[in-house]
Amino acid sequence: MNLFRLAGDMTHLFSIIVLLLKIHATKSCSGISLKTQELYVIVFLTRYLDLFTRFVSLYNTVMKIVFIGTSFAIVWYMRYHKVVKQTYNKDEDTFKHYFLLLPCFVLALLLHNEFTTMDVLWTFSLYLEAVAILPQLVLLQQSRNIDNLTGNYVFFLGAYRGLYVLNWIYRYFLQDHRARWIPWISGLVQTALYADFFYYYILSWKKHEKLKLPA
C-alpha cells in the first residue's frame, strides 16, 4: 500500500459519501444517472467475488464491503425511496448502458490474465468500470444546471482512478516492477473519459461560475 493508492481509495470513498449526502440531505437525485450507479453495483459485485474466499488485508475487506453496501444503497434510494425516486428524471438518463455489458464481457473473454471465472469476471469489472461513467457524463451534458454536490461527486470519482495511475507508476518503478497492463489501460481510459469534465470543472471553479458542460 502506498500513499497514492490510499489517497485514491479515500477519494473514491469520499465521492460516494458526497453522493449519499446529496441524496440523503436534499432527498433528491436530480442530475444523477441511475444507470451509472447500476453499472457500479455490477462492477463491485464482479470485482469482489473473492470477498469471502481470499483475505488480502482487513483494509481491503472492509473497503470492499463499504463499496458494495453504499452502491446498493444509492441504487435502492433512486429506485425505491418514495421521495427520492420522484426526483429521478429518466428522460434525461438516456444512455443505453446495457450495451456496455456485452462488449466488456466479450473483451474480458478475449483479453485476461488467466481463463478462470474469477479472473475473467475481475477483468470484466475493470473494463466495465472504465466506461461506467458514460451515462453520468451524458446526463451532465444534457442537464442545464449541475448542482455543486453532483459536480464534486463526479470530480472525486474521476480523481480516484487518476490517483490509482500514480499508484501503479509508483509500484512499477519503486516496488515490484510488475507490468499490469489490464488495470493500467482500463484505468487510463477511465481517467481520460473525465478529461473534458475536469477541464470545465476547474475552469468553472477558477472563474467562480456555475459548472456547465458544452452540449
Binding site: 470485482r47 473497503m63 499508484n167 515490484d176 488495470p183
Partner: peptide, 10 residues
C-alpha cells in the same frame, strides 16, 4: 504468485 498479486487492489 500471479493471481494472488493481480487482485490485491480495489
Amino acid at each position: 504468485d500471479k493471481d494472488e498479486d493481480q487482485h490485491d487492489e480495489l
